[in-house]
């Protein structure tokens, strides 16, 4: 496999000829095929596609949760494709923030403590508590520091998840169907908040979504169809 030797320092994310195949039973199934993707710093990109198009797989690869069968992935100029798990963990902590459809907050920690969690490991200068509070204030939850997830609404939980993703000042924030579990009003609120945060912090957002409103709000939409980027 020929590796692309160019460094991609102006790009938050660069995926070059990424492929992923899995053995399902006796059959080799190609989930992603020669995916090429470039996202610049400060961009808000939506990845759309029907169920089974490979969105989650692609998200997993660019988030450093999964390794591609072929191709390379650069995050903020760092080739994460063949990194060992220990190194990947460091990259996830420093360079990537993740938000999921199901919020995935730790139920025994308060909103503030959930946001502080990524700061407890790795090198993060400054006071974790004040950073967490600042981020919660940014997402409009200054009055919810001490509340646990079961005391928050769905929209509020998702905001906490976003604050957690942002607190380490990552190169990219990856979101998988962030409005999937929210009603329309909350979805709009979250979307508005993403816009505001993106404008204020210049963070790069990559969002996989079925939601047309989210796709419309993005700077750019990438369509995925049968494992390839549709032209």
């Amino acid at each position: 496999m020929q590796r692309d030797q160019q460094t991609s320092t102006a790009e938050a994310l660069s995926a070059i000829d990424v492929g992923k195949s899995l053995l399902l039973g006796r059959e080799q199934v190609e989930i992603l095929k020669d995916v090429r993707l470039r996202v610049h710093h400060g961009e808000f990109v939506a990845i759309v596609g029907p169920s089974g198009s490979g969105k989650s797989t692609l998200l997993g690869i660019i988030a450093g949760l999964d390794t591609p069968t072929s191709g390379q992935v650069f995050i903020d100029g760092i080739d994460v494709t063949r990194m060992r798990e220990a190194q990947l963990a460091g990259v996830r902590n420093q360079k990537i923030g993740m938000v999921f459809q199901a919020f995935n907050l730790i139920p025994t920690l308060t909103a503030q403590e959930n946001v502080e969690a990524p700061l407890a490991i790795g090198r993060h200068p400054g006071d974790a508590t004040s950073q967490a509070r600042a981020m919660l204030t940014l997402v409009g939850l200054a009055h919810r520091f001490k509340n646990r997830p079961n005391q928050l609404s769905g929209g509020e939980q998702q905001r906490v998840a976003i604050a957690r993703a942002l607190v380490t000042r990552p190169a990219i924030v990856i979101m998988d169907e962030p409005t999937g579990n929210l009603d329309r009003a909350n979805s709009e609120n979250v979307l508005q908040m993403i816009h505001d945060v993106q404008r204020e912090t210049g963070t790069t957002f990559i969002i996989a979504t079925h939601d047309a409103a989210v796709a419309e709000a993005a700077h750019r939409t990438i369509r995925l169809l049968d494992g390839t980027v549709a032209v």
């Binding site: 988030a63 949760l65 798990e85 220990a86 963990a89 460091g90 990259v91 996830r92 902590n93 420093q94 993740m98 999921f100 199901a102 995935n104 907050l105 730790i106 139920p107 969690a117 990524p118 490991i121 790795g122 957690r164």
Partner: peptide
Amino acid sequence: LLEIAMLKTQGYRQRH
């Protein structure tokens, strides 16, 4: 398990 996996997405390693 999910919250443990979530911690790993934030960079927590097995030793943590």
